[in-house]
Amino acid sequence: MEKRVVIADDFRSIRNVVRKTLEKKGFIVLEAEDGLEALKYFDGSEICLLISDFDMPNMNGAELAVEIRKLEKYKDTPIMMLTSNKRKRKEDEIAGLKIDDWIVKPFDVSNFYNIIETLIK
């Protein structure tokens, strides 16, 4: 079965890094520039992981997570939030939301995949 991952980040080169890392492992990576674009991928098709930046224009990571959790099919889809270190307080803001992991930018690409692997299982 195809393993499809959505990456939402407004910075293209971050998306590139994620995409290239995951493509090497046989994933299909769907890119989105912001939350609104990412949400379009959640149309009922199989998605095994969402990796999303926290701060994005139009719809940020938290808003995106809220929307996705509303959808029955994606209630338990793992969500991995990318953030910069100073955003701790934002975590509290969405404490009620099920976010599976937080990764602080800058992150180490080589270690990145290990985290993802545990999430997908």
């Binding site: 910075f11 971050i14 930046d53 990318l82 930018k105 800058p106």
Partner: peptide
């Protein structure tokens, strides 16, 4: 947001000083 993106990304690509 531009500052924010630059900060996050530049450190990832080894431009810590920009970060």
């Amino acid at each position: 947001r531009a500052m924010h993106s630059l900060k996050g990304a530049s450190a990832m690509f080894g431009f810590n000083i920009i970060g």
